[in-house]
Simulated assay, not measured.
Amino acid sequence: MPRPREFDQELALDKAMELFWSKGYERTSIQDLVDHTGVHRGSLYDTFGDKNQFFLSCLDRFRQKSYQRFKILEEPGEPKELLTRYFDAIIDNALGPDSSRRGCFIANTAMELGAIEPTISTRIEAYSVDIESRFYDFLLQAQKQNKLRGKHTLRELSRFLVTLRSGLYVMAKTAPDRQMLQDSVNVALALL
């Protein structure tokens, strides 16, 4: 009969995700994960598999947790106001003291491993498609309210907003100028 796990798996995932997010995949060792999570090496392997599988679980955890920000776009209100609040929250997060200007976990992973690790690329693509779909649904509602203008399709606008979102996180890592980030958002808001 196997021993019951003596640690909180979600807490261990959160701690590992934070470490991978701060250091990146390549610079994080198994020993770093053991030290940071406080979970013994054998228990980590038994629960999460090897470092790559553990990392994939962390990407999945991030994806699950990151959707909370999209709740802003589901609230009642003027689409332009909701999108403003959404991107204000993104900028706050990207520049805030809790983030240490570390960017977006998914964007960082895409830049570090996206082109060389197929299982990670697949997860990043799924995340991007999911975000695009959420923006699409939001824009569809705005269109039904006659709050969109311009010649772009909903798909084009959705993809633009995905790119803007990722770009804000990337830019905040090296240029923590709120006005510069806000200027980019202002261009996007002009489409509504």
Rank of each mutant, 00 (worst) to 15 (best):
T122K: 15
L82S: 02
D137M: 12
V162F: 05
N52K: 15
R27Y: 09
K173Y: 07
M171F: 08
L33T: 00
L148W: 02
D46V: 04
P2G: 12
R134S: 06
R69D: 06
Q64T: 08
G150V: 02
L148F: 06
E74A: 13
D14N: 13
N186Q: 15
A107S: 14
C58N: 06
S184R: 12
D130G: 04
L33N: 00
R41E: 09
E74R: 12
M180A: 15
C58T: 01
K147Q: 15
Y86L: 02
L157F: 03
L83D: 03
L33C: 02
S99C: 09
P118L: 08
E74H: 09
P4W: 04
L59H: 01
E156W: 07
T47C: 08
E6I: 05
F160N: 07
V39G: 01
E10V: 05
L157T: 04
E74W: 07
R178M: 09
T119W: 11
W21F: 09
A188N: 06
S133N: 14
L11I: 05
D183A: 15
A107N: 04
L13I: 05
A110Q: 05
H40M: 11
M111L: 14
Y25Q: 01
K71S: 14
D92P: 04
R155T: 12
D8G: 04
H36T: 03
S158L: 01
L73P: 02
C104F: 01
S57H: 13
A115W: 12
L164T: 02
M180W: 14
M17G: 04
R63V: 00
N186G: 11
K51G: 07
P176C: 05
L148N: 04
I116M: 14
E112M: 07
M17S: 11
K51M: 05
V187W: 14
G77W: 04
F135D: 00
D137L: 10
L11M: 12
Q182E: 14
F48G: 00
D14L: 10
A126E: 11
P76V: 06
V185D: 03
L139Q: 00
K80D: 07
D8S: 07
R69E: 08
N93G: 06
A89M: 09
R3N: 12
